[in-house]
Nucleic acid binder design. Structure first.
Lengths: 153, 153
DNA sequence: TCGTTAAATTGACTTGTTCCAGAAAAGGTG
DNA sequence: CACCTTTTCTGGAACAAGTCAATTTAACGA
């Protein structure tokens, strides 16, 4: 749950991005601050613990608006539903657990976007390099299975 | 369409992987040789031009068997259905067009897998680093829209 | 406080993929 | 060649994630 201070700063952020300030929007930002890399479903669930009934559509709309406004970044590791995070300023990358789907952030090795250049661009104009490190997290190695998180497909 | 020679070598490859040699399997390999990065749907369509009726399930079964045997690699760029390619030996990467979804290969800059190491592994054991370069391909920049390929979502 | 317009609601729908069952057809082995 | 097993078939049903469309509700500037 957010403090008044946090809420005020989020509301300002929304206005700054030209978006109206509404309960669902503040709640989504709050949820993402607490649970980075949450799926749309997980966001909906958490928003509902704060506000009561909120439609699935509202969640998708809010997330889409945030992504369009650059307030939220959407990542979509293979075999996982889309995940959302508020860390957008830097061009960081992700570690994804093959067993449980857990996602962790890694700072970009080189700093500025696109951070990596292809050896041959095949005529493409490159905007961004996305790096995903696939592996197995600590919990899935030791406890094996039934660890927290969504199982990978 | 494959030459007899190609077909023979593919059949040998299947046997080597402990898989039976069947029409649909050879056809899928043939299609993937001609159309790297094809989606399951596109593979099905092309296989049907070669063999007539082939069920969607057969295609999914064949692709899954190939992926399990390491003969085919499955990639899943955000916003696109899964795509399949036969280039599995090297750890190369991909360029994806944000406008039309087209995928192109890029050789790995560093060579051996995992080719990149995270600055902090957060307790994960890293197996592989996947790099996706997002950009806009030549056709989508010039002709704009209606270029070949599947439009990105 | 009012009107404009963005946002939320509801519920059906699409897409990509998987699973299921039983029957038919191949492949490889002896 | 005959047999056993794997693979494929038809066809459907189910799935999860996400989208569309029409209507109602609410934010915020005038």
């Amino acid at each position: 749950m957010a403090t008044d201070r946090e809420t005020a700063s989020r509301a300002a952020g929304l206005r700054g991005a030209g978006l109206r300030v509404t309960g669902p929007r503040l709640a989504v930002l709050d949820v993402l601050a607490e649970h980075p890399h949450a799926t749309a479903d997980a966001v909906a669930e958490q928003v509902r613990t704060r506000l009561g009934t909120v439609s699935k559509q509202a969640i998708y709309d809010v997330l889409a608006a945030f992504v369009a406004a650059g307030l939220v970044r959407r990542i979509e590791p293979a075999g996982s539903p889309a995940r959302f995070e508020t860390r957008t300023a830097d061009n960081h990358h992700h570690l994804v657990c093959r067993a449980c789907g857990r996602v962790a952030d890694v700072d970009c090795v080189t700093g500025a976007r696109p951070c990596l250049e292809p050896s041959d661009d095949a005529g493409f104009v490159i905007e961004e390099a996305e790096v995903v490190f696939w592996g197995v997290c600590r919990d899935c190695r030791s406890g094996d299975s039934r660890s927290a998180g969504v199982p990978a497909r």
